[in-house]
Amino acid sequence: MPEVIFPGPEGRLEGRYHPQKDRDAPIAIVLHPHPQFGGTMNNRVVYNLHYAFHRMGFTVLRFNFRGVGRSQGEYDQGIGELSDAAAALDYLQSMNQNAKHCWVAGFSFGAWIGMQLLMRRPEITGFVSVSPPANMYDFSFLAPCPSSGLVIHGTADRVAPPADTRALVDKLHEQKGITITHDEIEGADHFFQDPHMGTMIDHVTAYVKRRLTEGTR
Rank of each mutant, 00 (worst) to 15 (best):
V4E: 15
I5H: 13
G8L: 02
P9V: 09
Q20A: 10
A25V: 02
A28S: 11
V30G: 02
H32W: 13
M41G: 05
N42H: 14
A52K: 07
F53D: 05
F53A: 04
H54P: 01
F58G: 02
V60P: 05
N64W: 09
R66S: 10
Q72H: 06
D76G: 03
G78I: 03
E81L: 08
S83Y: 09
S83R: 15
S83Q: 15
D84T: 04
A85K: 03
D90S: 14
Q93D: 02
N96V: 05
N98R: 15
H101L: 12
S108V: 10
Q116C: 00
L118E: 04
I124P: 02
P132Y: 10
P132H: 08
M136R: 13
D138F: 06
S140H: 12
F141Q: 04
L142N: 05
A143H: 10
S147K: 13
V151L: 09
I152H: 07
D157I: 06
D157C: 05
R158F: 09
V159A: 14
P161M: 07
T165L: 05
T165W: 03
D170A: 06
E174H: 02
E174V: 00
G177F: 06
G177S: 11
I185R: 09
D189W: 03
H190D: 10
F192S: 07
D194G: 02
G198M: 02
V204P: 08
K209R: 15
K209M: 12
T213S: 14
R217N: 12
